[in-house]
Structures are given as structure tokens and as C-alpha cells.
């Protein structure tokens, strides 16, 4: 790993964050969110440093990382596209939307497009249930998304769309 974050190596980022959260009660989740916010994922190699910093076993840290859907152990694409799979969105055609997304992107849930632009994930409810189907792209939520609207959103995330 040669990439750096604000001049720090991955190990330094993790050490800094561990220092910041080691004395916070129940600080493991906020720490993992912070690391993922900095680096984009939680490097498996960092588990030992996190564990020793918080006085936990590596198994406990690994157990928490693997329990929660949000934490990832490998980098995602440049954008994360989440499609709501829950009932309100189902009632408005989200099953078809899911199939359309998979076909268009050529990946399944958990996958990332070959150009590294988009990772596709399921999500269970975005709290936007009166205007379904809903999708989330990074931190923005979109309502009443049909196949055509999804195509427009996807196009805006690819290299050509981003450079516009």
C-alpha cells in the first residue's frame, strides 16, 4: 500500500484514530466508522492494531466488523449505489428496479463495476417510504426512481458523467 491520506500512511491513520477513540465508552463502532470514513474500508491488517488499542481480542474486533452490513474489508467503487429492498419499495416495483440495476451494471449485490465507478449494495429502508422506490448514492437519497431515472443516475456516476 503506497496510497496516503493527508500525508499519512494507512498505519498512521489507524494509529491516530485508535488514539482518538481508545478512551471513548463503547468506542469501537465510532472508531470503525471513522476509519472507514478516512480510508474507505477497514483493512484486515488493521484488526490487530485496533484490538490492542481498545484492549479487545482480534476475534471481538473481527466479529464486530463482520456483523454489521456497513463495514467493508475491501475498498468499494468510487460511488456506492444502494437499492432499497424493503416492503414499501417492493410495492412500487423495486424488484424490477433491482433486476434492472444488476443487468445494466453487469454486477450483483456486493460487486463493483469493472471501471471501479460503482459498487452495488442492498439496503433495507431509507425512510423515504411514501415516495418509493428509493435509492441512495453515497449520501444522497433519490425518490420515485424507475428504470429510466436509474439509468440517468448511473450515467452521472461513470467517468464521462463525472467529467461533465
Amino acid at each position: 500500500m503506497t496510497r496516503e491520506w493527508g500525508g499519512l500512511s494507512i498505519q498512521q491513520v489507524i494509529a491516530k484514530r485508535v488514539q482518538e477513540y481508545r478512551d471513548v465508552s463503547g468506542g469501537l463502532l465510532p472508531l470503525l466508522h471513522a476509519i472507514q470514513g478516512d480510508i474507505g474500508y477497514i483493512p484486515p491488517a488493521s484488526v490487530a492494531a485496533i484490538a490492542s488499542g481498545l484492549n479487545l481480542s482480534r476475534a471481538e474486533v473481527h466479529g464486530v466488523i463482520s456483523f454489521y452490513h456497513d463495514f467493508r474489508s475491501a475498498p468499494a467503487g468510487r460511488h456506492v449505489l444502494q437499492i432499497c429492498r424493503a416492503e414499501a419499495c417492493q410495492s412500487m416495483g423495486s424488484r424490477e428496479l433491482e433486476a434492472h440495476a444488476r443487468n445494466t451494471l453487469g454486477i450483483d449485490y456486493g460487486g463493483t463495476t469493472a471501471d471501479g465507478a460503482i459498487s452495488l449494495e442492498p439496503v433495507y429502508c431509507l425512510g423515504n417510504c411514501a415516495c418509493s422506490p428509493s435509492v441512495r448514492i453515497d449520501d444522497s437519497i433519490h425518490a420515485r426512481v424507475d428504470a429510466a431515472a436509474l439509468d440517468v443516475l448511473i450515467a452521472s456516476l461513470t467517468d464521462a458523467g463525472e467529467s461533465k
Partner: peptide
């Protein structure tokens, strides 16, 4: 505020 991590 503490933020969850996607677990119903």
C-alpha cells in the same frame, strides 16, 4: 449521537 452500522 451514535451511528448504527446497518443492522435491523
Amino acid at each position: 449521537v451514535r451511528v448504527g452500522a446497518g443492522a435491523y
